[in-house]
Design a protein around this nucleic acid. Structure first.
Length: 711
DNA sequence: GAGCACTGC
């Protein structure tokens, strides 16, 4: 039984820590809109906390090149500040105010709300831009919400962002790759465009750092040209509207946080405090396991004739959209909803009615090891900032409680903030785009958080291997420039370019599109047998990527039939999105002068094109486990990476169990992704069998030795 | 032997 200290049991100090106003919590992705539904829109606008700061914000934007706004949850900053700027004349002379968001849904929903508040049709004065959808009208649109990725891509055509008078970067504390890249570039643009204003919305924790980064007041020649524009960033804090959340810690560490979460939910339930429960776990499997355990618990509660019944629902990104909706529906009368979620519920979505949060304090995070050049996912403790954000999810409707499944001492040992993605991800795509924007020296670029030098070198190595860089590490023509324009990972872009030479662009476009969406396989709960049978129908010995091609072909032959997809455990909506991406890729390829050709049954050509992109991910089967000291690895397939790695032990690679080649174990293959298991294995998730002599044929500057061995 | 979250003219 999990032992928590409850409010009032003991004086605060040793265990219970009470929260004031969720001050640590990062701002939520969307403000609450319908709190004052009966009021006229303009009255509602004036009731938002940010309205008290309207004049101050406009003054600061007038007089400072950069303004940093710390806006807490529910402050209204996202919807209101762009409107204040519009009203103050920042959209005259045909220029726009841009507001960037890390996520597509946020860009769309916020734009819709602001259009409603300004009494205009979405796409006219107020619009949005996300991949595939530009709902704005050139010459007419004044406020444009877009994803930060869209704005970055726009910079390839308009490096100084001349269409905009103000850029507001929202949710900057999330520190995504795109946000950090954008901020670094905006600092550069400001030197060339003194008229441009930058507003950065960020949580307290990051605000000081961002302010220091944008401080150009000490730079030589920083004196503004005649006007009184300050190059020193202004900092402004806007209070939010959240309720207090009381934090509880475990008295003793737990060994199984899934089980402890179930027990804690049952405890809350038995104590009969009203309100829904939100549990944070790390992955799909954990969520599903937890739901099953909660259902057992619910049966016990029913047997004990408790007044409430439990309604556990899973929530993770890979869940089909229809199943995701269950997490947002109100529980029927007499039921208490328990949402068991991954990180998706931390920032991406908001669930109404949550009063209790149970936090495992773990999540899956990307990690990059520049020595091995392997990017992988692994379970790791969250940061305090992340935990605060999770806790804040309990205080949206009324004062709530957060149960952290660790001791307070263990919690205090967590890092304050999550390491920015820039410092824990593979960076070839970022480096490629920076080069396309004229940033040639990565070491001297003004990074908000500089990535490790080894990571930058690895990125340059990979780009060089793909032919994107010339001998002086500049973007090559035409390959490098073409890769920068393709909206995919450089490795997949290289496969697309190779497919043009090999005559299989139709097939590679399909595979790349399928890799750009969530898994197309549906049927997470209780349908594993059916799912396996469906997969087996399409599986081929050439590997997972060729299997994707078969799935696509069969779906096409069905006439893109929704019922056919359901019968074969395929997610129809995901396939439609893949189709969208595929047609966009074909459009890009044609524009680059690459003919759309099919290799028909010559699948080897497809595999070779994929190998051209994934050539740094080529591995060879080593037949015994003898060279690995771990006894538990005996008899398991072990692969070694063929390219050079840094000093230190070679990574232990094996095929992930989800692969169609998990039992076939081809001698040579390339992989797309790896996941790190708790036992230290790197598990290759999407693999394709290759012929070893292809490697020197495709890249003799990387693989000379294999060619020598084989000839 | 089984799947963090996002994103791209």
């Amino acid at each position: 039984m999990a032992a928590f200290l409850r409010p009032g049991e003991r004086q605060s100090g040793a265990f219970g820590v009470s929260f004031d106003t969720d001050r640590d919590a990062a701002a939520a992705s969307l403000p609450t809109f319908n709190r004052n539904e009966k009021l006229a829109l303009q009255d509602q606008r004036r009731r938002l906390p940010v309205y008290q700061h309207r004049r101050e914000i406009l003054y600061l934007v007038e007089h400072h090149a950069t303004v940093i706004i710390v806006g807490e949850t529910g402050s209204g900053k996202t919807t209101q500040i762009p409107q204040y700027l519009l009203e103050a004349g920042w959209c005259s002379h045909g220029r726009m105010v841009a507001c960037t968001q890390p996520r597509r849904v946020a860009a769309m929903t916020v734009a819709a709300r602001v259009a409603e508040e300004t009494g205009s049709t979405l796409g006219q004065a107020v619009g949005y831009g996300i991949r595939f959808e530009d709902v704005s009208t050139p010459g007419l649109t004044q406020i444009r919400f877009c994803t930060d990725g869209v704005l970055l891509q726009e910079m390839l055509q308009d490096p100084l962002l001349t269409a905009y008078s103000v850029i507001m970067v929202d949710e900057a504390h999330e520190r995504s790759l795109a946000t950090d890249t954008l901020l670094g570039l905006l600092k550069k643009v400001q030197r060339r465009r003194p008229d441009l204003r930058v507003i950065i919305a960020s949580a307290t924790l990051e605000a000081e750092r961002v302010a220091a980064f944008f401080d150009a007041s000490t730079v030589r020649g920083a004196k503004a040209g005649g006007d009184d524009l300050s190059k020193q960033p202004a900092l402004l804090s806007v209070e939010g509207r959240t309720h207090s959340v009381q934090i509880h810690y475990l008295e003793k560490p737990c060994s199984d946080y899934v089980r402890t979460a179930v027990q804690t939910a049952a405890d809350i339930h038995r104590e009969d405090m009203p309100g829904d429960i939100l549990i944070f776990l790390t992955g799909q499997q954990e969520c599903e396991d937890c739901v099953v355990m909660l259902e057992e618990e619910a049966r016990k509660v029913r047997a004990g004739r408790a007044p409430l019944r439990l309604m556990p629902v899973p929530l993770y990104a890979g869940l089909p959209a229809a199943a995701q909706l269950a997490a947002f529906e109100h529980a029927p009368r007499g039921y208490r909803k328990v949402v068991v979620a991954t990180n998706i519920a931390e920032t991406s979505v908001t669930i109404d009615g949550v009063v209790f949060v149970i936090d495992s304090c773990y999540s899956k995070q990307t990690a990059y090891n520049p020595l091995t050049g392997l990017e992988s996912l692994l379970v790791a403790p969250v940061s305090k900032a992340s935990a605060a954000q999770r806790a804040g999810r309990a205080g949206r409707v009324r004062p709530g409680h957060c149960f952290r499944l660790c001791t307070e001492a263990d919690f205090q040992a967590l890092s304050d903030a999550t390491v920015p993605e820039m410092q824990r991800a593979e960076l070839s795509g970022t480096v490629l785009r920076l080069k396309a924007l004229g940033v040639d020296n990565m070491m001297t670029f003004d990074w908000l958080a500089p990535p490790p030098a080894e990571t930058m070198i690895r990125a340059l190595e990979l780009l060089h291997a793909l032919g994107a860089l010339d001998v002086s590490a500049r973007l090559s023509k035409p390959v490098g420039q073409q890769l920068a324009e393709l909206p995919v990972d450089p490795r997949l872009g290289a496969a697309l370019l190779a497919s043009g030479r090999l005559g299989c662009s139709e097939e590679v476009a399909t595979v790349v599109a399928m890799l750009s969406v969530h898994s197309v396989w549906a049927g997470a709960r209780g349908e594993r047998k059916a799912l396996e049978a469906a997969k087996a129908k399409f599986a081929v010995g050439e590997g997972d990527l060729v299997t994707y091609l078969n799935v696509w072909k069969a779906w096409q032959e069905s006439g893109r039939d929704r019922r056919w997809a359901a019968r074969n455990c395929l997610n129809h909506r995901t396939l439609l999105r893949a189709a969208d991406i595929r047609s966009q890729l074909c459009h890009h390829l044609r524009r680059l002068g690459i003919a759309m050709e099919s290799c028909d049954t010559e699948v080897a050509l497809l595999r070779k094109a994929l190998a051209a992109g994934l050539l740094m991910n080529a591995v060879q089967l080593v037949d015994t486990a003898a060279d690995i000291s771990d006894p538990s690895s005996a008899g398991v397939n072990i692969y070694r990476i063929l390219r050079s790695t840094g000093p230190g032990p070679l990574p232990k690679l094996r095929i992930h169990a989800s692969s169609v080649l998990a039992r076939t174990r081809p001698q040579w293959l390339v992989f797309w992704q790896v996941q790190q298991s708790s036992s230290g294995w790197f598990e290759m998730q999407e693999v394709t069998a290759i012929e070893p002599h292809w490697l020197p044929e495709l890249a003799d500057h990387v693989y000379t030795q294999i060619g020598a061995q084989r000839s």
